[in-house]
């Protein structure tokens, strides 16, 4: 059974709100950089940067991180992940890094992404923005900015679809029953 949780307008509004919250918390866009986690975190990161530009008039750098080489779950995952490029063509040292992903679940991807980021420099701080927080954390990680909290069961999955990759903006919860 599939339940639609967010439509395109709701996704857009959530990202707009996160942009405002990021600016509020950081008192503007100074020293701010955004890094999206492949694949869908990248598109949300890019949209956040556009919104921040609209609000503050300041362009902030957007990077891409691929966490395949930092994962701890490759052994248990059925298929191999293809290693894609990490592109952070700017220094993150002393910057405030907003790490962006589509869904926050166990926290293991975020752990991998933080490990990856630290290899690029020593940021002033790392903040986490996610479109969906579905609970069930296995590590002590929480998001600073959340588009929507969705309580889920373990056997359900959350599917985020974004125009750039899937042709449509939509979030659905898929359950096997």
């Amino acid at each position: 059974m599939n339940t639609r949780i967010m439509n395109a307008d709701e996704v857009n509004r959530a990202i707009t709100r996160i942009a405002h919250e990021v600016l509020e918390k950081n008192k503007g866009a100074r020293d701010l950089v955004i890094v999206g986690i492949r694949t869908r975190g990248v598109f949300i990161a890019e949209r956040l940067a556009v919104k921040i530009k609209e609000i503050e008039g300041e362009a902030i750098p957007v990077g891409i991180i691929d966490i395949t080489l930092y994962r701890d779950d490759i052994k248990s995952s059925p298929s191999k992940h293809i290693v894609k490029k990490t592109e952070i063509p700017f220094s993150i040292t002393d910057k405030k890094v907003v790490l962006v992903d589509d869904v926050l679940y166990t926290g293991r991807s975020i752990r991998a992404a933080i490990d990856g980021l630290i290899d690029f420099g020593r940021p002033a701080n790392i903040q986490l923005a996610v479109l969906i927080d579905r609970g069930h954390r296995e590590l002590p990680i929480r998001a600073d900015f959340v588009g929507k909290n969705i309580p889920t069961a373990h056997d359900e999955s959350v599917k985020v679809m974004l125009k750039e990759e899937d042709g449509v903006d939509k979030v659905t919860v898929i359950s096997d029953q």
Partner: peptide
Amino acid sequence: LLILDTAESMKEISSRDIKKVPA
């Protein structure tokens, strides 16, 4: 092609200050 594409992603690692990943 899989080897060449994967190598393209690997190349960036050698340009970092910390040239190492835990894979």
